[in-house]
Amino acid sequence: MQELILLVVGTALVNNVVLARFLGLCSFMGVTTKIDTAVGLGMATTFVMTVSSMIAWGVETFLLVPHDLAYLRTVTFILVIAAVVQFTESVVRKVSPSLFRTLGIYLPLITTNCAVLGIPLLNVHDKFNFIQSMLNGFGAALGFSMILAIFAGLRERLALAAVPRLFMGPPIGFITASLLALAFMGFSGIHTN
């Protein structure tokens, strides 16, 4: 149990998908202008990333490896993720059409980015079992959502700050992100010789 908790915490904080692995930067910069949409999108991405990691593990274990089709891994995982996104959208619509319409107005329901593909590939690389793959996907998504929310809060403050004209918009956003990445490096500890 302790190993599973450490896996989630390590993936969320130490190997943060945005600040340590530099994945999902398009969503990171695109939807972090408002904290509410960032939190909502974070939840949607968490669902998609976790379910994708689980299904990709099943596809890898029961289809690609037994049939020696590992060279099709990336293409297959892209298909899996596309199917999971469509499945999620369909299920939300079936579960509650009003919920689906409300979320559709304010949140992008197509929640896929390179981080969603990167995590299942990392799961294969690290030879995780089913539960480890699921928790690694969840931890990565948790870290992604946390960074979205933190960064959205920072950008809401930046919107009120007197930023030099040349640095307005994405430039000051990336500078802030780099400082945030430096802060998160602290979670990996300081190595001394």
């Binding site: 509410d36 939840m43 949607a44 669902f47 976790t50 689906f100 539960i131």
Partner: peptide
């Protein structure tokens, strides 16, 4: 914004947590 976050939690967080809890 409170309703939006509750709606997101209802659509995504509840099914996800139930699924993960059962699997673990």
């Amino acid at each position: 914004e409170y309703a939006l976050i509750r709606a997101s939690a209802t659509a995504y967080a509840i099914p996800l947590l139930c699924m993960m809890g059962a699997a673990v």
